[in-house]
């Protein structure tokens, strides 16, 4: 049953992604992208990953807010769709060739959902599943790995997020760039600041 649900969700997500890329109204495109994200979240739920589903929903809402902040009240609908015809044709042909080769690669993988064993003995995952409760006291194994066994990984993740925050703040701040650019842009930039 689960493979059919996942396949259905994937078709839904592909349609949503194509709508998001092709529709002219940017707000509608952002909403279509959010539909793709919710589809991914539901697929995670069906594959036994509720932690991922929760995180995906939260991140999805934040991405939605950021994209709406970027596009609202900005003139973006006037851009003519697409490139010249021959560039489009060449790109789509190249993508189709890439798809053909990738489909051959997929045949090497085991059939979906039918590996020989759940978790092989000797995998790190085997140790985590069997020992996590006695070693860390957490019933949720994903949390146990995230916050105990691989806690430096999480620390690095938070560092990356912090650096990204500093980057956003540096790129978007108003103070400090006025001195350099006021000469180039003259009065217009100063009006924008006010």
């Amino acid at each position: 049953m689960t493979p059919y649900i996942i396949a259905l969700l994937l078709v839904f997500m592909i349609i949503g992604a194509i709508i998001a890329l092709e529709i002219r109204d940017t707000l509608a495109a952002v909403v279509a992208l959010a539909a793709v994200g919710i589809g991914i979240s539901i697929a995670f739920l069906f594959m036994g990953a509720p932690d991922l589903a929760i995180t995906q929903v939260v991140v999805e809402v934040l991405v939605l807010l950021i994209l709406i902040r970027a596009t609202i009240s900005r003139d973006v609908t006037t851009i003519e769709a697409g490139r010249p015809q021959f560039v489009m044709t060449i790109s789509v042909c190249a993508l189709l060739i890439l798809l053909l080769f990738s489909l051959h690669m997929v045949e090497v993988l085991p059939t979906f959902g039918l590996q020989d064993h759940m978790v092989n003995i000797g995998n790190p995952s085997f140790h985590y599943l069997s020992e996590a409760l006695s070693e860390t006291g957490a019933a949720n194994i994903v949390t146990a790995i995230l916050l105990d066994y691989r806690v430096y990984d999480t620390l690095g993740e938070v560092t990356v997020l912090f650096v990204a925050l500093i980057g956003v703040w540096t790129v978007l701040r108003k103070k400090g760039r006025l001195r350099g650019e006021a000469v180039a842009f003259g009065q217009k930039e100063e009006d924008d600041e006010a």
């Binding site: 594959m47 036994g48 990953a49 932690d51 991922l52 995180t55 995906q56 991140v59 934040l62 991405v63 950021i66 994209l67 902040r69 970027a70 759940m118 978790v119 995998n123 790190p124 995952s125 985590y128 599943l129 194994i141 994903v142 790995i145 995230l146 691989r150 990984d153 999480t154 993740e157 990356v160 997020l161 650096v163 990204a164 925050l165 980057g167 956003v168 790129v171 978007l172």
Partner: peptide
Amino acid sequence: LAVDPLPQVLVLTAIIINFGITALVVA
């Protein structure tokens, strides 16, 4: 019976980091 938890942890990290990337690109 349980599914492999390790890929889920790595993807969880990747989701958060990709959110940072998206925020930076939009900025």
